[in-house]
Design a protein around this nucleic acid. Structure first.
Length: 256
DNA sequence: ATGGCTTATTGTATAAGA
């Protein structure tokens, strides 16, 4: 079973990339972030024609999350019940016996921004809600754009980024609070070296120079960690015309 | 060198992303 996450930065623009990637990679589950679409405009027909069920929680212009699955999607829940929010950043569902949580975590903008306080409060609410969710669904995966590079080895130039948003100690502490729930960063089960990223700035030829950050993650509860056989970043979509600034992260689970 | 791209918006410049 392959599960994946991809911040597409507008599904309207990126739908051809997504459909091509589904066809070539055949993931069982694909979590999308930043669809930037109202639910009425989500391309359910194209996704269904590609062989996928889909659930979406979106809004105009900003945010928006979706789960695509080859398997039926049940018990869908949207947003954090303990954090009332206009912004559509979380969708969860059960598929093929696994609880999938798809999240687009706040960016934070800068440490002196109100959005940074929102980010930290949102992450605390996510943690609290996940503690319950994991208790109810021991086989759970949290996939998405975390907007946090957990460690310096996830940053192309740690000195230049030190103390900035996406790497600041309070954000990294919030990431650690998630792993303290028993969740494991699937990518780091198999790779301990720096230089592996999931996002590159559109500017400064950052992708060609591999000036990136690893901010898209797949976290697994213990039962899924034990059956995880591989986790990798697929850089191929970042090389296409008009790419998203993020690329997919995929985990393979030895299940069914 | 705080710039540099990309997306969306009842647009023609601004906001936001990361």
């Amino acid at each position: 079973m392959k599960i994946a996450t991809w911040n597409v930065n507008s599904l309207n623009v990126r739908l051809p990339h997504v459909l091509a990637w589904l066809a070539s990679e055949q993931p069982d589950v694909l979590c999308l972030q930043e669809t930037k679409l109202e639910d009425a405009k989500f391309p359910f027909d194209a996704v269904q024609a590609a062989g996928y069920h889909a659930v979406h929680a979106g809004q105009k212009t900003y945010n928006g999350v979706a789960i695509l699955s080859k398997h039926a999607l049940a018990d869908v829940s949207i947003n954090l019940p303990n954090y009332p929010d206009e912004q559509k950043r979380v969708i969860a569902a059960t598929t093929n016996g696994i609880r999938i949580v798809c999240a687009y975590m706040p960016n934070g903008q800068s440490l002196d921004s109100d959005k940074y306080q929102y980010k930290l409060a949102w992450l605390a609410a996510l943690r609290d809600w996940l503690a319950n969710e994991i208790a109810q669904h021991p086989e759970l995966a949290l996939l998405g754009d975390y907007n946090i590079a957990p460690e310096d080895r996830d940053v192309h130039d740690p000195a230049a980024w030190a103390g900035q948003v996406l790497v600041s100690p309070p954000e990294r502490a919030a990431f650690q609070a998630l792993t303290a729930l028993g969740l494991t960063d699937a990518f780091r089960l198999f790779e301990d070296q720096p230089g592996h990223y999931s996002w590159w700035d559109y500017r400064m030829a950052a992708f060609r120079r591999n000036l990136g950050l690893r901010i898209d993650h797949i976290l697994l509860t213990p039962p899924l960690k034990t059956i995880c056989t591989r986790c990798w970043v697929d850089k191929a979509p970042r090389k296409l015309e008009r790419p998203s600034d993020h690329t997919p992260v995929i985990a393979e689970l030895k299940k069914i």
